[in-house]
């Protein structure tokens, strides 16, 4: 651990405060607007604090719409896709990072090219594919494409973190006679938790916010997700900011909870953990 001077601490405090402010102000604006009345939302001079505080936007978002169902669908789709991506991405990332395969670079480049391809261009052909499979209006119509389009990034990022782990750790496992899968599971993976966490969080958020495929493939309310639900708010000439922000405030909570739950086990667990020590 490094020594900390007084100046260092003050510098840190100021920097953190600025960072927090930069991030927080727009979020504050979104959350506070979600608690304003319709008149408060469009007050000629902005209400810096909602006055009066009103839950009307939340009622609009949740009572008048099938939003509860959309949240459930989003959770199912995002969790399933994230599990697939982490499981397959870890294996592939480890192999492409650590095992002596031929054609690694080509594989990685092809994966990169796939993630480059604009989403708008693949919607129509994927729709044909889904229809042929009879998957329109189903969870798998989203889970499989989400897994496929997030795997390239997950593989790249996991591979990068695997590369950072000292080789000796694997050698240790090999000397103990453990098979490679076991070495990966019990020695490498625990050390790569921050990387796994990063890949997991990014996959989850990407699935959580995906709009075009969810809108096109699933038109039944039973399978629609949050971003689609939000796109159905308002009317052609009216943007109901209050309702939009109420729904998105609620939609953001699971992500924050996810991070806070994993905070103890993953993030701070490694602050001074095995890797650094």
């Amino acid at each position: 651990m490094r020594k900390r001077t007084m100046g260092h601490r003050i510098g840190l405090a100021i920097a953190s405060a600025l960072t927090a402010l930069f991030v927080v102000l727009p979020i504050y604006w979104m959350v506070s607007t979600s608690f304003k009345t319709d008149a408060g939302v469009s007050a000629p001079s902005p209400q810096w604090f909602p006055n009066p505080i009103s839950g009307g936007s939340y009622t609009n978002a949740f009572v008048d719409n099938s939003f509860g169902r959309y949240i459930l669908n989003s959770v199912v789709v995002a969790v399933a896709a994230t599990i697939i991506v982490l499981a397959l991405g870890t294996l592939a990332g480890y192999a492409l990072g650590r095992l002596p395969m031929r054609g690694k670079f080509t594989t990685l480049m092809v994966l990169l090219m796939i993630s480059v391809f604009p989403a708008i261009a693949v919607i129509a052909p994927l729709y044909l594919l889904m229809r042929e499979l009879g998957w329109l209006n189903s969870y798998q119509a989203l889970i499989l494409p989400y897994a496929a389009f997030n795997l390239p990034f997950a593989i790249w990022i996991l591979r990068n973190y695997f590369l950072g782990i000292p080789r000796e750790m694997e050698e240790m496992g090999r000397i103990d006679g453990a098979n490679p899968l076991r070495t990966l599971w019990s020695i490498i993976l625990p050390m790569a938790l921050p990387g796994l966490f990063t890949a997991g969080v990014f996959t989850f958020t990407a699935c959580w916010t995906e709009f075009l495929m969810a809108l096109s493939f699933n038109s039944s309310n039973d399978f629609r997700t949050i971003p689609v639900g939000i796109a159905l708010f308002g009317s052609p000439h009216i943007t109901p900011y209050g309702t939009l922000f109420a729904a998105s405030t609620v939609a953001v909570i699971p992500i924050a909870v996810l991070v806070l739950v994993f905070r103890k086990s993953v993030v701070s667990g490694l602050t001074s953990g095995a890797v650094k020590g």
Partner: peptide, 14 residues
């Protein structure tokens, strides 16, 4: 979808 262009895009695809 409320947005007319998004609406048309989805209909066309379907």
């Amino acid at each position: 979808p409320t947005d007319t262009d998004t609406n048309r895009a989805t209909l066309t695809t379907q």
